[in-house]
C-alpha cells in the first residue's frame, strides 16, 4: 500500500529570501561591469558615516531623530548589569545610515595600497531612526558602490552608462534611465536616478531609484587620495524598493518579518 502519494520521495528544497535572490542578480550584472563586492561594519564610527563623507558637524542628518546613536556608556549601564566600560570602544558610534560608509573605507584602502582604480558594490543593511510604515523601515538594505580611476577615466557619463545597463538587466529592455539634479554632501555634481518602468498591462512611470554623483574632492582628500589624480562616481539606493517595484510587493515591513510566507509568496524558477 503506497502511503506516500504526494511526494516523489525527494526531500523538498528550502527557499532563499528574496533579498538574497536580488543581491545575486545585482552582483552578477555589476560583476560583468568589473565591480567587486565589499563589506563593512554596520556599527560605524562618525568619521566613516559622516565626517569623511563631507557631512558637516552640524548637519541635520546627525540629529538624534534621523540616526541611531549608541548609548554613551558614561551615562548608563546595560540592563544585564554589565559595566558600561566594556563597550567604551563604541562610544560615539552610529548604526550606519548608508552603505556609503563602506565606499569611504574602500577609498581609504586604495590610498593605503596605492591602487589607482577600484570598482565595488556594497550591499548591506542600513538604519534610519524613523517611524515605520508601508514604505519606510528603520532598517533596510542599500546597494551602494563606487568606481574610481585616474582623473578623466571615470565620469558622470560612465555613471549613466553603468545604470543604463544595470536597470535594463534588472527591469527589462524597455527600461529607460534619466538623471535629475540633486544634492548630497559626498558628491558634486549630485544626481537622482529615475527609472522608467513598465509593468505588463499597466502604464509606464518614472520612479526615483538611486542617488549618485561624482565623488566630492573633499571625500577623496579625506580618504588620503589626491583629488587632482583620482576621480570617480558613487551611488546608493534602497534595495527593497527595487523589489517592491519589480514584483509588486506592497509593504516594506514584509522583508524583515521573519515570516516564511514571504519567501513563498512568489512563483520561483531556477534560472
Amino acid at each position: 500500500m503506497n502511503r506516500d502519494a504526494t511526494s516523489n520521495g525527494v526531500n523538498p528544497e528550502g527557499r532563499l529570501h528574496p533579498i538574497s535572490i536580488a543581491v545575486r542578480e545585482i552582483a552578477d550584472t555589476f560583476s560583468r561591469m568589473g565591480f567587486g563586492i565589499a563589506y563593512g561594519p554596520e556599527l560605524e564610527d562618525d568619521w566613516h558615516n559622516f565626517t569623511a563623507l563631507n557631512v558637516p558637524e552640524d548637519h541635520p542628518a546627525r540629529d538624534m531623530q534621523d540616526t541611531f546613536w549608541v548609548r554613551d556608556p558614561e551615562r548608563g549601564r546595560s540592563p544585564s548589569g554589565d559595566s558600561g566600560d566594556k563597550i567604551k570602544g563604541n562610544q560615539g558610534k552610529v548604526l550606519r545610515t548608508h552603505a556609503t560608509s563602506v565606499t569611504m573605507r574602500k577609498l581609504e584602502d586604495m590610498a593605503k595600497s596605492g591602487a589607482t582604480e577600484m570598482r565595488m558594490i556594497n550591499p548591506g543593511k542600513v538604519f534610519r531612526n524613523e517611524a515605520t510604515d508601508m514604505t519606510h523601515e528603520a532598517q533596510f538594505y542599500q546597494v551602494d558602490g563606487l568606481a574610481v580611476g585616474p582623473t578623466g577615466s571615470v565620469t558622470l557619463a560612465h555613471l549613466k552608462g553603468t545604470f543604463d545597463t544595470f536597470y535594463r538587466e534588472y527591469f527589462g529592455p524597455n527600461t529607460k534611465v534619466r538623471f535629475r539634479p540633486s544634492f548630497f554632501g559626498f558628491t558634486e555634481p549630485s544626481v537622482e536616478i529615475d527609472v522608467w518602468f513598465e509593468v505588463p498591462g499597466k502604464e509606464g512611470r518614472w520612479l526615483e531609484m538611486c542617488g549618485a554623483g561624482m565623488l566630492h574632492p573633499n571625500v577623496i582628500r579625506n580618504a588620503g587620495l589626491d583629488p587632482e589624480k583620482a576621480q570617480g562616481f558613487a551611488f546608493g539606493g534602497g534595495l527593497e524598493r527595487l523589489l517592491m517595484v519589480k514584483y509588486g510587493i506592497p509593504d516594506i515591513r514584509l522583508f524583515y518579518s521573519g515570516d516564511i510566507r514571504f519567501n513563498y509568496a512568489f512563483e520561483e524558477k531556477k534560472v
Binding site: 527557499r15 529570501h17 538574497s20 538624534m64 541611531f68 549608541v70 548609548r71 538604519f127 524583515y256 521573519g258
Partner: peptide, 17 residues
C-alpha cells in the same frame, strides 16, 4: 532563509535613542 530585525530586548550595545 529568513531575515529578522537587528534590534533586541537585551544586548551588549544599547541605543541612545
Amino acid at each position: 532563509e529568513v531575515s529578522t530585525q537587528s534590534f533586541a530586548k537585551k544586548g551588549d550595545i544599547l541605543l541612545a535613542n
